[in-house]
Design a protein around this nucleic acid. Structure first.
Length: 646
RNA sequence: GCCGACGUAGCUCAGGGGUAGAGCGUUUCCUUGGUAAGGAAGAGGUCACGGGUUCAAUUCCCGUCGUUGGCUCCA
């Protein structure tokens, strides 16, 4: 007999060699029907794996992330089988589950696959699934495993096996298909009722661009057909929130092939929105002791040689601009920090003067690879809400925490409650990517982790995500399609103060090195607006939205009155427009709804007589006939309740 | 940069070897209206750009540019 401990602490006495399925059966019939994966003593096991010793067992169903993972990973085997049957001779590599579904990386050799082939693959995969084949794990000797894949000329699997130890190599069989696999499958293929191939993409073998490029086939699967339909509907819904679509519809920004790729053009409404965001942050920053500075868009090459940017990115950035006569070299600025360091150096500072906090909405230019450009989230020219804090070591922790507060205030005011805090540290295996002394890096990483912990921030640590000059605390937000983007960032830097030889005089009358904090709560206005658009679906908070109210005269006869109302709304600092086109009220309402304008103010005979407006909210709520003063109060109350003071 | 897809009117999109279509928008006229599309008429396109194949290319092929899904990269 063995003792199996369940997550709730209960202990089940089971026969030796009982399986997780048996344990589930002990608990309930329903669970036994639904259990699709399990974890025993920290390792993923099959539902059919015989348990030979005492241990802790967690059972997973489709409702758990782990269960979904097993489901999707199993599905990737089924799709791989279908692909192998349809495209003989292809070489399979790896096929893991991902956040939403799974992929399989395949060397298609002579074959090609494209969208029009998907339905064939889906059909065959589903046929295989319906065969209710059991997934069976078996241990294989290294020699046998190598033989198996050498005979298929599959150098990828051979490479994978060569990096494994004899005795820990397992194959998974189902139907006529065999794959190298460490396990974690659902009991049988029959549970997979719906499979969809979503797209194909190039992906380098082992993620290295020097390796062969494979074809990555993305797919998703479900235990019920209905869930697939719902998922596809969800994707459609997400597309409606895409900032590129909304930005066009709401006339916020555009791109011009003639201006250049990745160079956004802000239209009047978008520019007004940006300005409001800037003012919002400026006023918070003023209270937090920041001073605004202004610096030019270019700087001498030497400036960036000093900062280290040139050595790191000189080749991969916009190339230097040469002056016509002196042949001096200037670079478009990729960051504002070197300029701010020079501002710091303009004066001699005492410890009593610190911290100095220099802020600038600085537009920077970076040469991003063409394949990387994406709407407003990845562009070549963008404006950072940048600031650099120069402080003493003693002030660092406190300053850093203040910046966390400011960032949380910004995100909170705009309704971003779904961010991930990420401490981005060095990749210890690639020291060549970073500048500066190891001790400084350790000090900086420690400072960030300490401050984040003291703030009670729930964060993850990501190695290899640091900037080349220092580690960062990044605030990540997902876009409509589930991709993660870095918005706000706070960075600790011991390197640039040294490179620029920044100093201050301490109480000991000696010169000391200040520490620098780079920070941008929005990150960049471009990316921030993009994510805000996707997050709100274009329904911006009232304080931010370009047009707060649309006046809709019932007919031409009431245009004069509408203008009078507009005037008085303007006096209340309400941003309103009049729709005085020769159209019916119904049509004007429909279009105002589509423009996502929060309030529709219908004015006609009744309103003119009583000096009121008939207020309809976006979405249809009728707020009745009220006075302009009441409406102004309504608006300011709503703004005050969302826009907390800092 | 790499692999795949896409590029037709201001916008959203259909079409297809014989030089183009819809809806919305826009213009003019009628209508003067009460909470999600009132009616009529008109204008608007070198079918991204450059080559090639063909009697004929917007359509097929190649290249370029741009967009896009990924990969790599991301100061």
């Amino acid at each position: 007999m063995i003792n199996i401990t369940l997550p709730d602490g209960a202990v089940k006495q089971m026969e030796s060699n009982s399986t997780p399925f048996d344990v589930a059966l002990e608990i309930s019939q329903g669970l036994a029907r639904n259990v699709i994966s399990a974890n025993f003593n920290g390792t993923t096991v099959e539902v059919s794996t015989p348990l030979k010793e005492d241990g802790t067992l967690t059972l997973y169903t489709w409702e758990n992330d782990e269960g979904k993972k097993a489901f999707w990973h199993s599905s990737s085997h089924v799709v791989a089988q279908a692909l192998q049957e349809l495209y003989p001779g292809i070489k399979l590599t790896i096929g893991p589950a991902i956040e939403n579904g799974f992929y399989y990386d395949v060397d298609f050799g002579e074959h090609t696959i494209s969208e029009k082939d998907f339905s064939t693959v889906e059909k065959r995969a589903l046929e295989i699934a319906r065969g209710k084949h059991n997934f069976k794990m078996r241990e294989v000797s290294k020699a046998d495993a190598l033989n198996f894949y050498n005979s298929q000329n599959n150098e990828y699997k051979v490479e994978l096996i060569e990096n494994l130890n004899d005795g820990e190599i397992t194959f998974c069989d189902h139907s006529t298909f065999t794959d190298l696999c460490r396990g974690g499958h659902i009991p049988n293929t029959g549970l997979i009722k719906a499979i969809k191939i979503l797209n194909v993409a190039g992906a380098y073998w082992r993620g290295d661009e020097n390796n062969t490029q494979l074809t990555r086939v993305y797919g998703i699967s479900f235990p019920k057909q209905k869930q697939l339909t719902e998922y596809l509907e969800l994707l459609e819904e997400a597309k409606k929130r895409d900032h590129r679509k909304l930005g066009k519809e709401l006339e916020l920004f555009t791109f011009s092939q003639k201006v250049g790729q990745g160079l956004p053009l802000w239209l009047p409404k978008g520019a007004a929105l940006r300005e409001r965001l800037e003012n919002f942050l400026k006023s918070a920053q003023k209270k937090a002791g920041y001073e605004m500075v202004v610096t030019p868009h270019i700087g001498q090459k030497e400036l960036y040689v000093t900062s280290g940017h040139y050595a790191k990115y000189g080749e991969d950035s916009f190339q230097p601009i040469h002056t016509p006569k002196e042949d001096e070299e200037f670079l478009l600025k990729p960051m504002n920090c070197p300029h701010h360091c020079e501002i710091y150096k303009n004066s001699r500072w005492s410890y009593k003067d610190l911290p100095k906090r220099y802020a600038e909405f600085g537009t920077v230019y970076r040469y991003e690879q063409s394949g990387e450009l994406h709407g407003l989230t990845r562009v070549r020219g963008f404006t950072q809400d940048d600031a650099h804090i120069f402080c003493t070591n003693d002030q660092l922790n406190d300053e850093f925490k203040k910046v966390i507060d400011l960032t949380l205030y910004v995100l909170g005011s705009l309704g971003f409650d779904n961010f991930t805090a990420q401490v981005s540290v060095r990749d210890l295996e690639k020291p060549e990517k970073y500048i500066g002394e190891v001790e400084n890096w350790e000090k900086a990483e420690q400072a960030i982790i300490e401050a984040a912990e003291e703030k009670g921030l729930d964060f993850v640590i990501e190695s290899g995500e640091a900037a080349f000059y220092g580690p960062k605390l990044d605030f990540m937000i997902k876009d409509a399609l589930g991709r993660n983007w870095q918005l706000g960032t706070i960075q600790v830097d011991y390197n640039l103060p040294e490179r620029f030889d920044l100093t201050y005089k301490g109480s000991d009358n000696e010169l000391h090195r200040p520490v620098m904090i780079h920070r941008a709560p929005f990150g960049s206005l471009e990316r921030f607006v993009a994510l805000l658009l996707e997050h709100t679906g274009g329904n911006f908070p009232l304080w931010l939205i370009p047009t707060q109210a649309m006046l809709l005269p019932v007919s031409e006869k009431y245009e004069k009155y509408a203008e009078k109302v507009l005037n008085s709304l303007e006096n209340h600092e309400i941003r309103a427009l009049i729709d005085n086109r020769n159209e019916t009220v119904g049509k004007k309402i429909r279009e105002t709804e589509l423009k996502k304008i929060p309030f529709m103010l219908v004015v006609g005979e009744n309103e003119e007589e009583n000096g009121t407006i008939a207020v309809r909210r976006h979405g249809g709520e009728d707020l009745g006939n009220i006075s302009i003063k009441d409406f102004a109060n309504l608006i300011s109350n709503e703004i005050n309740s969302t826009l907390k003071s800092f």
